[in-house]
Every structure is written in structure tokens, then in C-alpha cells.
Amino acid sequence: MTLEILLVDDDPVGQYLHNNILTKCDFPKQLLFENGALALDYILEKKDEDILFLIFLDINMPVMNGWELLDALHKMSITAIYKVVILTSSIDSSDRGKADDYPQVFKFVEKPLSVTCIDAIKENTDLASYF
């Protein structure tokens, strides 16, 4: 199984920042998507190729937002092949509570993403073997 990193964020600055810091922290190449629908299409296309998708997901996006993407993925029963880190500028506790409803979301991060935070992500039991 190989690891693919998907950055789903409509904000170019957000994409730049995350791309920058993840690369610095030795993450493999990241694929950038402007909204949930584009990411979903990509995952559907490659879902049978033995890939683990690590999705850094923004919440507020046009076309398909973060929650809608999570709902769509949840309906497809492919939980084994993706893991989600929610990356949001929101500090609203209700968003954090909502994230708990999705078992594939293992981390809820308030922007900006920090090195300490990335280290914690790397230590996740399902991911540690890739680093």
C-alpha cells in the first residue's frame, strides 16, 4: 500500500502554506484540489489501486465543502483506504464536535498547521510505517 497526500483547500494561500510545511517535514508529494468534488473524483478513480489517501481537508469551500466530501466518502464504505485531518480556520467548538461523528477523521487542526502538529500526525499508528 502506498501513501498519497491530498490537500483539499480552495484558498491558494492555504495550499501554499500547507504544501510548504509538509514538504519541509518530509511528506511525499501532495496533490492539490480546490474543492471536495475534485478530490472525490480522484479518489473514486483510484480507489482500487491499493493506495492509502491522507486527506488534509478544509471545511468551507465552494462546490463541495469538507462535510459534504466526508458524507460522500462515508456512503461508499471505503473506510480502509482514507484518513482525514481537518484543517480549518474555524475555532467554533460545534465544528470540532461535528468532526467527532466521522471515525475516519483522526485529527482536527486549527490553521495554521504547525510542525509539532505534523509530528503528531506522523506518529499515528496507521501512518507511522510510511515515515
Partner: peptide
Amino acid sequence: QSHVVRAPLARLMGL
């Protein structure tokens, strides 16, 4: 406050 204000602020902090 929690959503909209935080967005440019998070960007500033990251940059």
C-alpha cells in the same frame, strides 16, 4: 468571529 475573522488571521500566522 470564529469562522471569517479566523481565516485571514490563520493565513497571516502561517505566512
